[in-house]
Design a protein around this nucleic acid. Structure first.
Length: 922
RNA sequence: GGGCGAAUAGCGCAGCUGGUUUAGAGCAUCUGCCCUACAAGCAGAGGGUCGGCGGUUCGAAUCCGUCUUCGCCCACCA
């Protein structure tokens, strides 16, 4: 064996072995199930550091469960990522000189599927490199047959139940992709912009300039110039004035009383619009005059509804100005803007208005602008016909289970976030004007669509059905035979399906159920066995998108929670705390890291500093630590395997061996318990740290040094066996975190053994035994260690070469271990002399004669410093004990503890004083 | 504007149902070592008074109040 662990071929070999032996695969059986469904990455995505964190955590949980004897099943899969994938496909088509608009739906989908097949699943292959123990036989895709079936069935079902409706609403419109988005897909950014103060001439209803308004009450703020009176309207979006339909003031606003009941002329556009009054308008903001543009602002739309105002949509789907919607007599006034981009238009219209003297002033202004999460272009509020899910019902069923911890969140702080969202739930816009996705299973009569009102059917005549055939049947039933006859066509010719697709999350929210075919066949064996799943591991950024909605769908369709625990990971940042991003170039390629540090090293690196919910500041040194640890394990194994073993017990060694093995047994059991406890609390990094410390400190630095034979000498069979057994137990403890190296060494240990399991993966974590005297053993070793450290400390301080034997004078008998590890002869009884250095363990004083190395002055200084510290400590203790109220009020055991502190400190002070005396007299 | 969370060694964290030898590990730092398992290592050391102030208590990093600073989420003030 090489002195350096090289993970590369070992990792590949074992992963293949696991797969070939079907060790990842799960089938329902009599064992307790442990199910995890992967948060499906985008089908065309590639592995990044966030995935590494997320998937490693899942693998740790799954592998641990397997070792605990559960039937672990980790289901992998990918997400079709409607908008993101469609964008990528469009981009590629463009590079080939093809425009989406020139393709039919079918042609486009052909390209999209080709793209998916080409790039899809790369990420799943990459997960194998990381060591993920997914049941690949179960790999699913949100748009595969089963999942699509579930989506369509759920849509139809919710429509039937009245939870899905279609309506004309103000939605978030992405002008780049030309689709509606849900509220969750809009990200608001602070933006430095301007507040433009525009002059709206006060006119009569028929457009005459108003030059005389008579006497006005105190407090009114009038605006007047040579051309007459005008109102001042503040806006951040002057390009929307083409859609202005009113100006609104607060009826209580003293400054604007004079405007009540009057009319103004929209500058440049020329439309004459009324002043309306509503308390929504805030007095004192801007001028207190709000321009109302119902087609292009959510609030304005609400006002428009309230006062029955017209909406004039002045934008095309890609947010360019469209004058065709304006009143014919006005179109000429603004024709120069026709076809302009909205932001271009903003500049132009301000410039034009300034020329006309209609801009009062421009102020700097910070506001928030919504951007599309996917395309990163500013959202345009747009009135359109979309499909929505009524969410109140779902909020109602999903809130309680989380608040009362039926479903547990780690960390718990996200319960608040969750509650906040559910308590202010709004309907979910689920339709997208995209082709890549689940096509909305809604059908309309062509004639109604083509020429609204031409036929005598009610406008809400919509057919929702899972297949065309079913839709046709419904259509026939809906239409009287007379009507069909009158129209003279077959229903089948006239039904057309909704062009839109469903929001990707409308399939994701079914994931834990649909993976086991629980929508179409709610009573099948798999869903009965694997569901509810155990743990969900995901980022808090999709708590609303996904987690909350899965809980809703889970309860709606199974009556049960979709998962028992949700582990929210943090965000992986670089060591300067910046988010990892392509543009910053601060995101390392995980595959490259695995190449450099090994998968085990990378896994440990990312896990070590990743408590639930905390962001992790990634640095290569973390992986380095992981790699170094692998190396350490590797070399321990080399050492043990290199020993020559003899059956008989050498007498003089037996005490050491006995003490060491009994102590380590206790230590190991304790850590096993701790790790189990930490895992239950999902404190993964602490669990790993506990194993790490056990291995490096207790096992390597202490235990192995204790039992290590002298060079060239053999070790007894008994000690060797227990040592290997310890090693094996640690491998199992470590396996969930570092699957590869543990498998390699475990196989090596198991070689030739009869009835061994196929892999450490399916080995069992032993029962945790706690010996009655474990604490005493640990305490005893603690003291031995301290004595050894005491001697080593003196050696280091005095620069005594490691080879030079020293003498330890001890008042009590000490273990042989001290001799072996500290390199000193132990002399029991003798007293310390003026030429020795001393130290205290517990209340016992040990000393080391130093002869030539001694420096009385230094030694005195050290002892006196120690004495001072001890006296200070004693003073603190005495302050408490002398306080009657402390003695009276504190719990008895606390008082007893303080008394023990007092006695120990006094003993130590005594010893120190004596040593100082001795030194001084020398 | 509303809500939530956090501030503890150079760094990222644990401790926080108040009392366990005057605050703990890891990484980093410093010192000494290539002592034939491991320099991707070994041995040893230094370093914080627990964001500020006030309060409750015999006793507070731990509870309460307040201030400051960060972070996150939500929200239709043009």
């Amino acid at each position: 064996m090489e002195s350096k662990y090289s993970p590369k071929d070992i990792e590949q070999r074992w992963y293949q072995y696991w797969q070939e032996n079907g060790l990842f695969h799960s089938e329902p059986d009599g064992r307790e199930p442990f199910t995890v469904v992967i948060p499906p990455p985008n089908v065309t995505g590639v592995l990044h550091m966030g995935h590494v964190l997320n998937e490693t955590i899942q693998d740790v949980l799954v592998r641990r469960a397997r070792l605990e004897g559960k039937n672990a099943c980790w289901v992998p899969g990918t997400d079709h990522a409607s908008i993101a994938t469609e964008a990528k496909v469009i981009k590629r088509l463009k590079e080939q000189g093809i425009n989406k608009q020139d393709l039919t739906r079918e042609e486009f989908l052909k390209h999209a599927w080709a793209w998916t097949e080409e790039h899809g699943g790369i990420i799943l292959k990459q997960l194998r490199t990381l060591g993920c123990s997914c049941d690949w036989d179960r790999t699913a895709f949100t748009m595969d047959e089963k999942r699509s079936e579930a989506v369509i069935q759920v849509f139809c079902d919710l429509y039937k139940k009245g939870y899905i409706y279609r309506g004309l609403r103000m939605v978030n419109w992405d002008p780049e992709r030309q689709t509606a988005l849900s509220d969750e897909e809009v990200i608001y950014h602070d933006e430095h912009s301007h507040l433009f103060y525009l002059k709206y001439r006060v006119v009569t209803a028929d457009g005459q300039a108003v030059t005389d308004i008579g006497e006005q009450a105190e407090g009114n703020v009038l605006h007047r110039d040579a051309d007459g009176y005008y109102a001042v309207v503040a806006t951040t979006r002057p390009e929307t004035i083409m859609g202005d339909i009113a100006v609104c003031i607060n009826p209580k606003d003293p400054a604007n009383q004079w405007l009540k009941g009057r009319y103004v002329r929209v500058p440049k556009v020329g439309r004459i619009i009324p002043i309306i009054e509503d308390r929504y308008v805030e007095i004192g903001f801007g001028t207190g005059c709000l321009k109302v543009t119902p087609a292009h602002d959510v609030n304005d739309y609400a006002l428009g509804q309230k006062y029955n105002l017209k909406t004039i949509d002045i934008f095309t789907a890609d947010a360019h100005l469209n004058m065709d919607t304006l009143e014919a007599e006005l179109q000429n006034n603004v024709s120069s803007y026709h076809g302009m981009d909205r932001f271009e238009c903003r500049k132009q219209i301000i410039s034009d208005l300034q020329t006309l003297g209609l801009v009062e002033k421009i102020e700097d202004y910070d506001n928030k602008v919504g951007y599309s999460e996917r395309t990163n272009v500013p959202i345009e509020p747009r009135l359109s016909l979309q499909w929505f899910v009524r969410m109140q019902h779902f909020a109602d069923i999903a809130l309680a289970p989380v608040m009362n911890d039926e479903i547990q969140f780690y960390p718990t702080k996200y319960k608040n976030t969750y509650r906040n969202w559910l308590e202010n739930i709004k309907d979910w816009c689920i339709s997208r004007q995209l082709w890549w996705g689940h096509r909305i299973p809604a059908y309309y009569f062509k004639d109604i669509i083509d020429h609204t009102g031409a036929e005598a059917y009610p406008e809400n005549m919509i057919i929702v059905a899972s297949t065309l055939e079913e839709a046709q049947n419904q259509a026939k039933a809906m239409l009287s035979s007379e009507a069909v006859a009158r129209l003279g066509y077959a229903v089948s010719d006239r039904l057309i399906q909704d062009e839109g697709a469903l929001d990707t999350w409308f399939s994701s929210w079914l994931w834990p159920v649909s993976l086991f075919d629980g929508i179409a066949h709610p009573n099948n064996k798999e869903i009965q066995y694997y569901y509810p799943t155990a743990d969900l591991v995901t980022g808090p950024d999709i708590i609303f998108f996904w987690v909350a909605r899965m809980i809703m769908a889970g309860y709606e369709y199974t009556g049960k929670m979709p998962f028992r625990h949700v582990y929210f990971t943090g965000i992986v940042r670089d060591k300067l705390g910046r988010k990892m991003s392509k543009s910053l170039g601060n995101s390392p390629d995980p595959l490259d890291l695995i190449e450099r540090y090994g998968a085990d090293g990378v896994r440990m690196g990312i896990l070590l500093s990743a408590p639930a919910g905390n962001d992790i500041l990634y640095d290569d040194s973390l992986c380095e630590q992981g790699r170094n640890f692998c190396n350490k394990i590797w070399n321990c194994f080399r050492l043990i395997k290199g020993w020559e073993v003899v059956p008989e017990i050498k007498k003089e060694e037996s005490e050491i061996m006995q003490v060491a093995t009994r102590w380590f047994e206790a230590m190991l059991s304790k850590t096993e318990w701790e790790v189990g406890d930490l895992m239950k609390k999902y404190r993964l990094s602490e669990a790993l740290m506990a194993v790490y410390k056990l291995f490096t400190d207790e096992f390597s630095s202490w235990y192995l040094e204790m039992i290590k034979p002298k060079y060239g000498e053999p070790i007894t069979q008994e000690t060797y066996d227990s040592t290997l057994l310890f090693f094996e137990r640690m491998l199992r403890l470590l396996h969930p975190f570092m699957p590869f190296i543990t498998e390699e060494l475990w196989q090596n240990i198991m070689e030739g053994k009869e009835a061994k399991p196929k892999s450490i993966m399916v080995d069992r974590l032993g029962e945790i035994k706690q010996e009655a005297d474990a604490d005493a053993l640990l305490q005893q070793m603690e003291e031995i260690k301290q004595v050894i450290t005491g001697v080593r400390n003196i050696r280091a301080q005095k620069n005594i070469p490691p080879k030079e034997k020293m003498t330890l004078v001890s008042p009590v008998a000490v273990s042989e271990i001290v001799n072996k590890l500290a390199g000193c002869e132990v002399q029991v009884g003798g007293s310390s002399s003026s030429t020795s250095a001393s130290f205290i363990v517990g209340t016992t004083e040990y000393s080391v004669p130093l002869d030539k190395y001694v420096n009385v002055a230094d030694e005195l200084k050290k002892l006196e410093a120690d004495l001072q510290h001890q006296e200070g400590f004693l003073k603190g203790v005495m302050a408490k004990l002398n306080n009657e109220r402390f003695v009276a009020n504190a719990k008895p055991e606390v008082v007893a503890m303080e008394r023990k502190k007092q006695h120990d400190a006094e003993a130590r002070i005594e010893a120190l004083k004596k040593s100082i005396e001795t030194l001084k007299n020398a």
